[in-house]
Nucleic acid binder design. Structure first.
Length: 110
DNA sequence: ATTATGACTTCAC
DNA sequence: CGTGAAGCCATAA
């Protein structure tokens, strides 16, 4: 297993695993919760590495606009299907009603 | 050491 | 919300 810049990756996984079913969060939100809002890209990297962690629901992590950027990494429409299955409405590769399904750790987990 | 790249964000229009 | 530019940071070559 490759390097893990610290427990940063671990922290990311912890938070992502706490995302409730039918809700989504963003890389920036997680990063912010970890006290590194300018490290959103690294959260993405952590997710990339998370491919080895089935327990991490990476499909519930989208970008700030609710766009399913991870779609390509999941392959096919796996992500969209899975989210839809959980009750999240997906349209044109984006989460609908984002305001309702968005889950911000720095708020919900406060 | 330097350049390029990316599962991002924010600001301006 | 959409597009384009700039900022930020770890990894890869």
């Amino acid at each position: 297993m490759p390097y893990q810049s610290n427990n940063f990756f671990q922290e990311v996984y912890e938070v992502v695993k706490l995302v409730p079913r039918g809700r989504v969060t963003s890389y920036g939100a997680v990063a912010a919760y970890l006290g590194a809002k300018n490290r959103a890209r690294m959260v993405g990297w952590a997710m990339n590495n998370a491919g080895s962690y089935p327990e991490v629901p990476a499909h519930r992590v989208v970008n700030r606009s609710g766009e399913l950027t991870a779609r390509d990494h999941f392959g096919g429409n796996t992500m969209a299907e899975r989210l839809t299955e959980e009750g999240v409405t997906i349209k044109n590769n984006r989460v609908q009603h984002l305001k309702q399904v968005f889950w911000d750790p720095s708020v919900e987990l406060l």
